[in-house]
Design a protein around this nucleic acid. Structure first.
Lengths: 332, 332
DNA sequence: ATGAAAGCGCTAACAC
DNA sequence: GTGTTAGCGCTTTCAT
C-alpha cells in the first residue's frame, strides 16, 4: 500500500481533511472523540505527514541551514552538536553542509540550501565573497555568522576575535619570559581564522621588537601528525627556540610529541602554544598553552539567536555575541 | 521586494511559466535566445527556486536523511564527511540528525526526517527497536544501516562485525603472549558496538581459559580524560596486568598517558589496545594496538549505495558491504 | 466543532 | 519550441 495522505486518513476516520489536520496538530477546537478517531486512523495507517506540502502551504519551514568548512577536526562537530542541542524542543531542524574551506563550494551549498526556504541560515566566518553575501542578503532571513568577529557582520554574529586571541597569547608568552619564537601552521590560505591569529601574534611580537625566528607552514590541513613532522623540521633548523606558536591544538599536540621524541623539555626548554582548548590537551604528558574557545557554546548561542529571531517578538536583543578566550597552560 | 517566483521571472522574460522552468533546468528544447532571456531575468531578479514546490510537484526529493548517535568524538563526523563527499555531484543533499545515543530521540528524529520525504535514509547500527524499524520499513525508501553488521539488516548494510573485531584483537594479543587482561570502557549501555567488541573479546578469553582480571567501566561518554582516570584506578587495584583492552582509541590514549605518569612501560610492561585506528595514535609517544576501521570509506560507500539505489537501474548490487578491520600496533 | 474553497510554487502530461 | 491544464498534499480563510 502506498503512503497514505491526510485525505485518506480523514476518510478512514469519517471526517474532512481539515478536521483531520486540526486533530493531528492538536488544535483546541476538535472534540476529543473526533480527535481519538483521527489519531487511531493515522496510527493504524502509519501516517507520516508531508512537510513539503505543509511548508509550501503554510509558507514557513522549520529548517535551519548550517554551513561549516570541515568535519576533519573536532571543532566544527562540536559547534554542530551545540546548534543541534540548542534547537532541541523548538521544532526546528538543522540541515548541515560542508564546504571543505572552498568559497565556490560554499556559495553553491548556500544557494542550494536557500532553495529549501530555511527560516534562518548559519555560516562560518564573515569573509564570504561579495556574491555569497548577496545571496545571503536577498534570502531575507536571519543570517548568523559564527566563530569570527573580525569583519563586518551581515546580521547576527557569534564568536571571538581571532586577531585579539593571537595578540593576547603573544603578550602572555612574552610576559612569561619567552623571546625566541617559532611558528608552525597549516592551510593558512584556507583557514582564515588561523591566519588572523598569526597576524595578531606577530603584531605584538613586532611591538616588542621581536618576530618569528623561524616558521614551518604546510598547505595540508592541520593534524597531529603534521604538527609533529613540522616541529621536528623546525627544531632541526633552529634548536634554540624557547617557544613555538601553532595554528591550533592539533598541531601543537603533534609538536609536543615531537619534543618528547627529541628529548626537548616542555615547557622548560620550549613552551608550546596552540589554540582551541581541546579536551585532549588536559590529559597530555606535558602542559601546553592554549586559548580556550567555547565551541559548543557558540553553537548553542547561535541556536538561541535563531529561535529569538524567528519568533521575532520585536526586540531581538544583541546582534553580536562576543566571547573572550581564556588562556591556560602558561605556568598555572 | 519580495522573493520572486518562477512566474514573475517568466513574465519579466516575456514567456510562460513552463518555458521559464525548462530554461532554468537547462532542458534541450528551448531556443537559446529564449534561454538567454530567462536566465538574464532570473539573475537580475536574484531568483532562487523553491524546492518545496519542486519536490512536491515532481514527487521526488534530493534529500538523504542521516542519523548518527553523536558528534563528540571524531568517528561520526568522519563518516558524515564521507557521506557528504560521496554524494557530491549527485545533486543529492544530506540532512543530519544527532540522536545522542537515545533510542527515543532517534525514533523522533527519524519520524521528523521522513516527513521531508527523503529519497533514502542512513542510520547507525542495526539494533533499532521494533517501532523504529516499522517507521523505516513503511517509508518505502532505501534504508542504509551503518557501522555494524552483527544483526539483521532492514535493507542495505555497510560496516564491520564488532563482535569479530573484539575476537580478533583478543586472539592477536594472546598470540603476542599477553595473559593478564584488564578492561576499561565507558557508556557501554548506550554504545552497543563497544559492548559487542567487549563480548567478542571475552568469548576468546574464555576459550583460552582466561578472563578479565579486573575492569573499570563508567557511564560517561568516552574521552581521553576518562580513559586516563579509569586506567589509573585500574592499575592501582591490579598493578600486575600485562594488557588492557579499551572501548575505543580515545580511552586507550588516556590509558597510555596514565601509564606514562605512573612510570609503567608501554608496551613492554602493559600493552594497550583500543579500537578505531584514529590518526592520533600514530603520533603518540608509545605504540598502542588498535583495529583500524574505515570510517570515511563507510560513509562514501553508503553514499554510493544511495546513488545506485535511487537511480535504480534494476540491479542494485550487493546489499551488504563488509569491512574487516586491520589490527596494528602489536609488535609491528 | 466542522467543512468547503482557494491556493502555496512548481512540474508532468499533453496540446499546438 | 512553447503554452495550457491539472494537480502534488497540505493549510489558510471563511462559512456554517
Amino acid at each position: 500500500m502506498r503512503k497514505p495522505t491526510l485525505e485518506e486518513v480523514a476518510i478512514e476516520a469519517g471526517v474532512s481533511k481539515m478536521t483531520a489536520s486540526r486533530a493531528l496538530r492538536g488544535a483546541v477546537d476538535v472534540s476529543s472523540e473526533t480527535r481519538g478517531r483521527v489519531l487511531a486512523a493515522a496510527t493504524r495507517m502509519n501516517y507520516v505527514g508531508n512537510r513539503l506540502a505543509l511548508s509550501l502551504s503554510s509558507q514557513r519551514t522549520n529548517l535551519v541551514a548550517v554551513v561549516v568548512p570541515s568535519m576533519s577536526n573536532i571543532v566544527f562537530p562540536e559547534v554542530l552538536a551545540g546548534i543541534s542541542a540548542g534547537l532541541d524542543g523548538s521544532g526546528m531542524q538543522a540541515v548541515f553542509g560542508i564546504s571543505d574551506y572552498d568559497v565556490n563550494k560554499e556559495r553553491e551549498i548556500i544557494r542550494d540550501m536557500l532553495s529549501w526556504q530555511p527560516c534562518a541560515i548559519i555560516v562560518t566566518g564573515l569573509d564570504q565573497p561579495e556574491e555569497t553575501v548577496g545571496l545571503l542578503r536577498h534570502a531575507d532571513i536571519p543570517v548568523i555568522q559564527l566563530m569570527d568577529l573580525d569583519g563586518t557582520p551581515i546580521d547576527f554574529n557569534v564568536g571571538l576575535s581571532h586577531g585579539a586571541a593571537g595578540e593576547d597569547m603573544a603578550e602572555a608568552l612574552i610576559a612569561a619570559g619567552r623571546s625566541r619564537f617559532g611558528y608552525v601552521g597549516s592551510a593558512l590560505a584556507k583557514d582564515q581564522r588561523a591566519g588572523k591569529r598569526k597576524a595578531g601574534f606577530e603584531r605584538v611580537l613586532r611591538a616588542h621588537g621581536l618576530g618569528f625566528t623561524e616558521q614551518r607552514i604546510d598547505d595540508a590541513f592541520s593534524s597531529i601528525a603534521l604538527g609533529k613532522q613540522l616541529t621536528t623540521a623546525l627544531l632541526a633548523a633552529v634548536p634554540d627556540l624557547d617557544c613555538i606558536y601553532y595554528s591550533n591544538d592539533d598541531m601543537a599536540s603533534g609538536g609536543l610529541f615531537a619534543c618528547m621524541e627529541l628529548g626537548v623539555a616542555v615547557p622548560r626548554q620550549v613552551l608550546i602554544a596552540g589554540f582551541n582548548g581541546l579536551d585532549l590537551i588536559n590529559s597530555l604528558p606535558a602542559p601546553i598553552a592554549t586559548s580556550r574557545s567555547p565551541r559548543r557554546a557558540i553553537g548553542e548561542i547561535a541556536a538561541q539567536l535563531v529561535r529569538r529571531a524567528v519568533a521575532d517578538e520585536g526586540d531581538v536583543g544583541e546582534r553580536t555575541i562576543k566571547f573572550k578566550p581564556t588562556i591556560t597552560g602558561i605556568g598555572d
